[in-house]
Simulated assay, not measured.
Amino acid sequence: MDLFGHIEPAVTNATALDGVRLLKALALPQEAALLADVERVLAAAPLRHMVTPGGFAMSVAMSNCGELGWVTERHGYRYDGWDPLTQQAWPLMPASFAVLSQQAATLAGYPDFVADACLINRYQVGARMGLHQDKNERDFSQPIVSVSLGLTATFQFGGFKRSDKALSFPLYHGDVVVWGGAARLRYHGVLPLKAGMHPALGESRINLTFRKAG
């Protein structure tokens, strides 16, 4: 039995991990618009390696768009409407982002999802994201929508404690994962990115994570 049911458009299948849906290659038809919009957002809000409250620079470079952006500070993590690097509001969320995130959420059973925050992560070879929970949002009834572009990444889903065993699976260019409901607060992460060359993004991977934060 596959860990995740592979969902074709307009079909939602039960999975071995309750609350998680994998939509294979859903983003591919919008690839050109998504990549162009990523470039425009990052021109206004450049990528940066945020520093954790413990003083460690993250290996993944980050930025945001939408009404709110995820940021770190000495006391922890939070959402803010202003980019601390540019002292400007975060760029507006591009229409291509909003359409894809709503399409994915609807296919996964969340037709009312409207993201107000998109975290943009750039992984280069060796970059990783340790197991963590998305818990800075106000409403945990809203799902997380994660879009993969570029090099293949090994994604991990754990349990509700960091020490729980994590299951791993590959995410390819264009794949979208949606998790909510029983899975909303599962620990998840990305193993170190392996070397490779992608025709659109070279030696890197871009991840778009959509949330209803406010």
Score class of each variant (00 low, 15 high):
Gly81Val: 01
Ala33Glu: 12
Trp90Pro: 11
Phe210Thr: 02
Ala27Arg: 04
Val41Gln: 05
Gly189His: 03
Asp139Arg: 03
Val41Glu: 06
Arg21Ala: 14
Thr152Arg: 10
Val51Trp: 11
Phe140Lys: 05
Ile144Gln: 00
Ala44His: 12
Met62Gly: 01
Leu208Val: 07
Gly81Arg: 09
Pro53Gln: 14
Arg128Trp: 05
His198Leu: 03
Arg211Tyr: 00
Gly158Asn: 08
Val60Ala: 04
Gly126Met: 06
Gly181Gln: 03
Gly66Thr: 01
Leu42Thr: 14
Met62His: 03
Gly180Lys: 14
Arg138Met: 00
Asp37Met: 05
Ala182Glu: 09
His49Gln: 14
Leu34Arg: 02
Ala25Glu: 13
Gly150Thr: 06
Val176Ser: 06
Pro199Ser: 04
Ala166Phe: 10
Asp116Gly: 04
Phe157Cys: 02
Asp18His: 09
Leu28Glu: 13
Leu167Gly: 01
Val145Asp: 04
Gly5Tyr: 02
Arg138Cys: 00
Leu34Tyr: 12
Phe210Tyr: 04
Asn121Phe: 08
Val99Gln: 15
Leu167Asp: 08
Tyr172Asn: 14
Ile144Ala: 01
His198Glu: 04
Ala115His: 09
Met50Val: 14
Ile144Leu: 08
Pro111Tyr: 10
Val190Asp: 02
Leu68Met: 12
Met129Tyr: 08
Gln88Pro: 05
Glu31Leu: 09
Val38Gln: 02
Tyr77Ile: 08
Ala95Thr: 15
Leu107Lys: 05
Thr86Trp: 10
Ala45Trp: 05
Pro46Asp: 13
Val177Asn: 12
Phe140Ile: 15
Trp90Thr: 08
Ser96Ile: 10
Val177Phe: 07
Ser96Tyr: 10
Gln87Leu: 13
Val20Phe: 14
Thr72Met: 11
Gln156Pro: 01
Gly202Arg: 11
Ala182Asp: 11
Lys194Ala: 10
Leu171Gln: 07
Lys165Trp: 03
Ala44Ser: 14
Cys118Gly: 15
Ser101Lys: 02
Asp164Trp: 01
Pro91Cys: 13
Val176Gln: 09
Leu17Asp: 08
Tyr79Met: 02
Arg48Val: 15
Pro94Asp: 07
Phe97Thr: 11
Pro192Phe: 02
Asn136His: 03
Ile144Thr: 04
Val178Trp: 09
Tyr187Lys: 00
Leu151Gly: 00
Lys135Thr: 06
Met197Asp: 14
Pro111Ala: 13
Ala153Phe: 00
Ala166His: 07
Val190Arg: 00
Gln102Gly: 13
Gly54Glu: 15
Leu151Met: 02
Lys161Asn: 15
Phe140Asn: 12
Gln87Thr: 10
Met197Ala: 12
Cys65Ala: 02
Ala153Glu: 03
Gln87Met: 13
Thr152Glu: 08
Pro94Ser: 14
His132Pro: 07
Phe155Asn: 06
Asp164Lys: 03
Phe155Val: 02
